[in-house]
Design a protein around this nucleic acid. Structure first.
Ligand code: FES
Ligand code: FES
Lengths: 147, 147
DNA sequence: AAAATTTCGTACAATATTGTCTTAAATATA
DNA sequence: TATATTTAAGACAATATTGTACGAAATTTT
C-alpha cells in the first residue's frame, strides 16, 4: 500500500504534532528513540519533508524539526504525496491498462466502477484527515505510534 | 498497493479466463507475448498459482496452463491472497500500531473508523469480483490487458 | 524408442528499496 | 573565538523485490 518510508514519515509528523511546543524543535535522536526507528533513515525522510516546506528545521544545539504549518493544514494525503507520490491514489489497483475515469464506458474494464468508488473513498479519507485530528484525538500517543 | 508480481498474476489469470477453450492449455510463451511481460517470471507466478490449485498445468507439447476451477469461483481476492498474501487487506494503512477492529474504542487512533470503512470496501470489492466478471465483460481484451 | 516441446525447480543476477556512515554546514554556548 | 551539538548531503551497504538462466521432468509427436 504505502512504502515503509512513507509510513515512518506519517508517524514522525504525527509525533511532531502531538509533542510540539511553541517555538521549540525536536531532534532526530529523540524522535527515532520514541518511535523505535533508525535515526539516520528518519533524518532523510524528515529532510525530504523539510524541503517541501512541510517541516522546519534548525541545526545546532537545541535544533531539530517542527511543523512548518498548522497541524490542521497538513493532511495524510500531503505526507503521502511528498514521500511516495500520488500514484497509489491514481493508478489502477490491479495493474490493468489505462484506468482513467474520463473514458467512454466501452473502454473500461468490468471492475472499473467498483474500483474507482473504492479509490475515491481511499483518496477522500487521506485528503480529509489532518495531522491535527491526530494530535487532538490521541491521548496515549506512545501506545499508538510506537512498536 | 499490490506488488507487480501480483498484478502480473491477475492479468494472466484474466487472460486465461478470457481465452480459455474447453480442454486446452495455453503456454507461457503465448501468454507472455500477449501481455508483454517476461516469460520466465510469468512462469514462476503461474507455478505459484498452480501449486495453490487455482491453475492446472501440463508439461510437454501443447502443454501450458488453464484455470483449475470455474472462472466464477476465482475472485481477485483469491489471486492476491495466493501471491501477496492478505496483509494489504488487514494491516494498518498508515503503519500505526495494532490496527484491529475488535479493540475498545479508547485504544484506537482517530483515523480508525474512516480507515476501516475504506479497507472493508476495498476488501469487499476484491472478494466480490470474480474472474468470470472479466471474461464476460471484456470484449477487447487486448486493449485492456496489454501495455 | 527417440526427439521435440514445454512446464518445474532451483540457482543466479539486476534493480529498487531500505538502512548506515561520514563529512560538512549551521547554530548555540562557553 | 573555540567547542559542542545537531541537521544536511551524499556516498556506501544490506535487504527485498523483480527478473533471468539452465538443467530436469513430463508429455506428445515422429
Ligand atoms: S482498468 Fe483499472 S479497474 Fe478497470
Ligand atoms: S491504527 Fe490503523 S487506522 Fe488507526
Amino acid at each position: 500500500m504505502l512504502s515503509n518510508t512513507c509510513k515512518y514519515g506519517i508517524r514522525a509528523v504525527i509525533y511532531l504534532a502531538v509533542n510540539q511546543i511553541e517555538g521549540k524543535k525536536i531532534g532526530i535522536k529523540k524522535i527515532s528513540e520514541e518511535l523505535t526507528l533508525p535515526a539516520p533513515f528518519l533524518g532523510k525522510i524528515l529532510q525530504m519533508l523539510a524541503k517541501k516546506k512541510m517541516l522546519a528545521s534548525t541545526k545546532g544545539p537545541n535544533g531539530g524539526f517542527s511543523l512548518a504549518k498548522d497541524a490542521e493544514d497538513i493532511t495524510l494525503f500531503d505526507i503521502v504525496e511528498a514521500i511516495d507520490g500520488t500514484d497509489v491514489f491514481e493508478q489502477c489497483m490491479i495493474g490493468l491498462k489505462i484506468c482513467e475515469d474520463d473514458k467512454s464506458k466501452e473502454e473500461k474494464c468490468p471492475f472499473h466502477e467498483k474500483s474507482s468508488v473504492v479509490r475515491t473513498k481511499f483518496y477522500n479519507a487521506f485528503k480529509q484527515q489532518t495531522v491535527k485530528d491526530f494530535s487532538t484525538g490521541i491521548k496515549n500517543a506512545d501506545e499508538i505510534l510506537t512498536f
